[in-house]
Design a protein around this nucleic acid. Structure first.
Lengths: 135, 135
DNA sequence: ATAAAGCCTGTAGTAAGTACAAGGTCAATA
DNA sequence: TATTGACCTTGTACTTACTACAGGCTTTAT
C-alpha cells in the first residue's frame, strides 16, 4: 500500500516539506511516482523516515544520520563496534557542549551577581561596564 | 586616530568580514570613509566592537546584543533592572539548554549501553534496532 | 461543473558568520 | 617611474536543518 507525501507527513508527524528536504539531501531515496508525478511511499520509506526522525531527536546531525543509515543499509559489511563508535562520539560531543554551557553559565552568574537590578539609571550598571571594559 | 578595517580586525581579533557583517546588521554604526572609500574607525568603534565580542562570547544572540547596546546607548532612559532582566533571561535559556542536553545524554547513554560494541555484524545492533523500532 | 484540497517545482528565508571574485588603492621596491 | 603586493571595496554564495511560499497541475468532493 502506497501513500502520498501528505499522508506520510500526517502519519509520521514530519513536516511534508521536510520529507522533500530529506530526499534532496539523500537521506530518503527518491520514491516512485504516480502517473501524474505524485510521490508514492511504501513501508520501507515509513520506517526509514522513522529512523531519521529518531536519530535527529537524539541530536545526530544529518551527516551522522547518513552514516548510521549507511551502516544499517549494509549491516553485514559493518560491525556493531562502528555503530557504537559513532554513538559514543556523539555522546562525547554532547558532554562537551554541556561542559561549555556550564562554564558559560558560571561566568554569566558571576557577572549578573554584581548588578543589584535596581530601578535606577543603567549608566553605571556593572554588567554593561564589564562588557565594555578593556582587558 | 583612525584605523582601517584590517587594523581593527587585527587589534580586536575579530574577522574583518565579521566587522562588515556587524555593520550590515546594524550592531556597529557605518564608519566614516576616507577619500577613496576606506572605512575609518575610531576609539568608539573599537570599544563598541569589544562589547559585541564580549556579549557574543557570553552566548547572547545578535538580537540580544542589539538590545544590550540600546540600553547602553541611552543609559539615562533605562534602568539596571532592564539590563539584569535581559541577563537573567539569557541565563535561564542556557540553563534550559543544559537540562535538555543532559536529558539527551541520558537517553543516548541508555541506548548505547545495550550495544556491546563487538566486531560482529551490525545486523542486529541494538542501537540500530532501537532507531528503527515502532513506538 | 466547480471549488477545495492536495500535490508539483523552484526559490527564498532563518543565524551568525565565512569566503571568494572582480576590481580599486596604497606603499614600497627595482 | 613602473610595478608588485598588500590592502581595501562591493556583491554574492556557502554553511545547517529546515520552513514557507508562489505559480501551476491533479484529485476529490459537492
Amino acid at each position: 500500500m502506497m501513500i502520498t507525501r501528505g499522508k506520510l507527513s500526517e502519519q509520521s508527524g514530519c513536516n511534508a516539506e521536510t520529507i522533500r528536504y530529506y530526499e534532496r539531501i539523500g537521506l530518503l531515496p527518491d520514491p516512485p511516482r504516480s502517473e501524474s508525478g505524485y510521490r508514492m511511499y511504501d513501508e520501507e520509506h515509513v520506517s526509514r523516515l522513522r529512523f531519521i526522525q529518531r536519530a535527529r531527536e537524539l541530536g545526530f546531525s544529518a551527516e551522522r544520520v547518513r552514516d548510521l543509515l549507511n551502516l544499517s543499509d549494509s549491516p553485514k559489511q559493518h560491525t556493531r563496534a562502528e555503530v557504537k563508535e559513532l554513538t559514543e562520539a556523539h555522546i562525547e560531543e554532547i558532554s562537551e557542549k554541556i561542559r561549555d554551557l556550564q562554564k558559560l553559565k558560571k561566568r554569566l552568574d558571576a557577572i549578573s551577581s554584581h548588578c543589584d537590578g535596581a530601578m535606577e539609571s543603567a549608566a553605571d550598571c556593572p554588567i554593561l561596564v564589564s562588557l565594555f571594559a578593556k582587558q
